[in-house]
Design a protein around this nucleic acid. Structure first.
Lengths: 173, 173
DNA sequence: ACGAGAGTGAACACTCATGTTCAGAAGTGT
DNA sequence: ACACTTCTGAACATGAGTGTTCACTCTCGT
């Protein structure tokens, strides 16, 4: 339900709640019962998206690693969440809860820790700012998901392509 | 005018035309005179954005190059267009003209040509799909612009950071 | 078979964005 | 000073989205 709502609202942020309800195969009345207002729906999607991302990061088991494999696992976990990442990025600025906004920062902490450890181990170059690594990590996950959604990229190939691009770029090897 | 409109509509796609007019420092009546409907405004922004991008690509002088410097020039030209890239990417799917949609493809042709030449010269690894290079090229330009807009990255540092990341990734050198 | 709960469409009032018209203000060139 | 153009706010009608209520249906567990 929130999955479909997220996708509809990403495809067209001006979609009406009637559109969302129809896409979710549910009556508009029911939608209003579960999420009284449009804002409530947006917050619910945001909250659920963060839950998913938090689970994905936790599931990638990166807490005690500093190697490339951990980065690859992380990318593999993030790519399927493309629509949710998109939703959060687009709505980060305005419509979301304050409580939700502060949670965004804590979400990235384990990722930033992994990056710092990886830089100590020379898995990641030291000169690169951590925020930049975080930024392009999500960016690559999004691009990979987009390519999968467009049918240009096989699901199973996506993590490897994103990972190789992240670590080695596209220059000669 | 279209610059401000683009930024307002990116920040909040549900912004009213009154909001856009106010942000542009112009009366709502005047806005409606220049762009009779909301759709007309969106198309005008889209068209203008493509003009800008086309100029940027042409100005980067990549037509007869295959070296890394050409890629760097291209990135440097694209990064300041961050808001326009964002606008086109977000509205690509739905609201835009058909004529505009077909133009998107022709826009990328010189970029794809450059990538193909660069792959022949081994400036870019051959195994990487061209569409993927195009995708992350724009993606990196967007990320770099976002960092500049957030004040995390100096304008003059942006092209180099994006370029290095594109070519070499973030792994050890 | 029965009752509880969830889901549903229809209808309603309300707000707001939209597009239009119009008369006046402000600026420009002659 | 003049005519001309452009911009402007105000007002209006219209349409669409929103949130609410209500009576009805369906399903599930007892």
């Amino acid at each position: 339900m929130l999955d479909i709502a997220a996708e509809v609202l990403i495809a067209d942020p001006r979609a009406s709640l009637a559109d969302v309800a129809a896409a979710a195969g549910v009556g508009r009345t029911t939608l209003h019962k579960r999420y009284p207002t449009r804002e409530a729906l947006l917050i619910a999607i945001g909250r659920d998206s963060m839950d998913r991302i938090e689970e994905a990061i936790a599931g990638a088991d990166i807490a005690n690693s500093a190697d490339a494999a951990a980065l690859r696992r992380l990318l593999g976990a993030l790519i399927p969440l493309g629509p949710r990442l998109t939703f959060l990025i687009r709505h980060a600025a305005d419509e979301l809860d304050d409580a939700l906004m502060s949670r965004v920062e804590t979400l990235d902490v384990p990722v930033e820790d992994l990056i710092l450890r990886a830089q100590k181990e020379q898995t990641i170059r030291s000169g690169v700012p951590v925020w930049w690594v975080v930024s392009i990590l999500y960016s690559l996950a999004y691009s990979a998901w987009e390519a999968v959604a467009a049918g240009r990229l096989a699901v199973l190939d996506a993590p490897a392509l994103a990972f190789d691009t992240l670590i080695s770029g596209i220059g000669p090897s």
